[in-house]
């Protein structure tokens, strides 16, 4: 991602061509990204090769940090992150597909209500929303208190375990799965579904042979988004999980804060960046976002 596309040389300004204009228009964005995205990331990558516990950037590069990572238990937190993210993606696919189907194909006015109801949550800091679960699930919290009062069942805190971390991630990243799925399902033409039905396919066959393959772009985008976001998740494990599970993101954070070992944190970040880059490029290379957006226009 550090490769900026080659900017073509501007043609003589006598006649401003669209090509020239397009290049000029993209310049502010490129400058912003160069300063605020590419340079910091290069900085991180470079810092990963510095000797441990230093704060200076101009020293002999070394692989010592990477050796530390693979010799110690850091790879465990990487595996935890990937595992949690995978479970989150699969859970969300199961939860969101029927809802997205309803929104794209069945509800009329209700669909935009659900859209707004869910989208609103995107603008509420995820800390606040996760904290709501804490209040709900803590000892004598909303759930426990209600059970004690109504059914006379005493339960301990439901917090600080792995399922609740997954619940938190599923909850926070639900919109990122739902909306791509809705878009993907909207791209399945109604007449194509009807034709399959008319040609003798049962509802299940229509789902398997028409809906699922044709909404695949949405499924892919949603899964990708959720995977990348939840692999970098930090608050869910901290707020809901206590210290039960250490994810790579919180490992990185603690290297930068408590341990004050910036080079090691940088090396971890570099690995992490490499991981997400591979996933994103692999997935984004496979379909055309312009087509998705362009299709949206014709609706």
């Amino acid at each position: 991602m550090s490769a900026t596309p080659s900017v073509p040389a501007p043609k003589p300004p006598r006649e401003f061509s669209p090509a020239f204009f397009g290049t000029v228009c993209s310049l502010p964005f490129f400058l912003l990204m160069l300063f605020g995205f590419v340079a910091p990331l290069l900085c991180v990558v470079w810092f990963g090769f510095m000797p441990a516990k230093t704060f200076a950037l101009l020293q002999m590069p070394t692989f010592a940090n990477y050796e530390t990572i693979f010799n110690q238990t850091y790879f465990k937190s990487i595996l935890w992150s990937i595992g949690l993210a995978t479970v989150t993606v699969l859970t969300l696919l199961v939860i969101c597909y029927p809802l997205a189907f309803g929104m794209a194909k069945i509800f009329r006015g209700g669909a935009s209500f659900i859209t707004y109801a869910i989208a609103t949550s995107l603008f509420v800091s995820e800390n606040i929303r996760l904290f709501g679960w804490v209040i709900g699930f803590m000892k004598n919290g909303v759930v426990g208190g209600t059970l004690a009062k109504v059914f006379d069942v005493q339960i301990d805190s439901l917090l600080y375990n792995i399922p609740v971390i997954i619940l938190g991630m599923v909850y926070v990243y639900l919109p990122f799965m739902l909306f791509p799925l809705v878009l993907g399902l909207k791209m399945v033409p109604d007449q194509v579904r009807e034709a399959a039905f008319d040609l003798g396919a049962s509802r299940w066959q229509v789902f398997k042979k028409i809906d699922l393959p044709l909404s695949m772009p949405g499924v892919l985008i949603g899964s990708l988004l959720v995977f990348v976001l939840s692999v970098g998740a930090i608050s869910e494990a901290k707020i809901l999980g206590g210290q039960k599970v250490v994810t790579i993101a919180s490992d990185i954070e603690s290297e930068f804060t408590y341990a004050q070992n910036w080079p090691l944190g940088s090396a971890l970040s570099t690995l992490f960046i490499a991981l997400t880059t591979v996933v994103v490029f692999f997935a984004l290379g496979r379909f055309d976002l312009e087509k998705l957006l362009g299709k949206k226009r014709s609706e």
Binding site: P40, V44, L224, V228, I252, S269, F272
Partner: peptide, 10 residues
């Protein structure tokens, strides 16, 4: 698509 915590640290 980039994890925000890492971007913040960077």
């Amino acid at each position: 698509f980039f994890p925000q915590s890492v971007l913040g640290l960077a």
